[in-house]
């Protein structure tokens, strides 16, 4: 141990070292008699209120991990808050969409025609999307 201590020559001591040494050098002394009188009512109240769950030793968690966990929690809460809440289930939305679609479709009386029976503008728009144009009439 002496060799180990000597190998630390030049290394600055941590600030809390003196506090630890001072504490270790303090002699054991008896608590004053009235201390239990002061503490006993609080302990009795705790005992009446329910089980006292013993505290486990909490694992050591780095500040970075805690910050990351807090950030993830905040992001998750933000996601949930920002999600649109329509109040409708997916099935209800689908049913409403289908009904709306049917309503609009009912307004249309459709007739199939040959390409050359379409208007020139319709044929030009279709040709812009790749429909055959001139070699075989649109």
């Amino acid at each position: 141990m002496q060799d180990a201590l000597r190998s630390l020559d030049g290394v600055p001591a941590p600030p809390e070292l003196w506090d630890r040494v001072a504490l270790a050098r303090m002699e054991q002394c008896r608590a004053p008699a009235e201390l239990w009188d002061r503490v006993q009512p609080a302990v009795a109240e705790l005992a009446r209120s329910g089980r006292i769950v013993p505290l486990r030793r909490t694992p050591r968690v780095s500040r970075q991990a805690l910050a990351a966990a807090a950030l993830l929690l905040a992001a998750g809460a933000g996601f949930l808050l920002l999600l649109p809440s329509s109040g409708f289930s997916a099935g209800e939305i689908q049913a409403r969409h289908a009904a709306r679609r049917a309503q609009f479709r009912e307004r249309v009386v459709a007739v199939s025609v040959r390409p050359e029976e379409l208007s020139p503008v319709a044929r030009a728009l279709a040709a812009s999307l790749g429909a055959p144009s001139v070699e075989r009439p649109l």
């Binding site: 007739v111 025609v113 279709a126």
Partner: peptide
């Protein structure tokens, strides 16, 4: 609406 429909070339 009276509509004229046609499909050719996938359009």
């Amino acid at each position: 609406v009276f509509a004229r429909n046609c499909t050719i070339g996938g359009i």
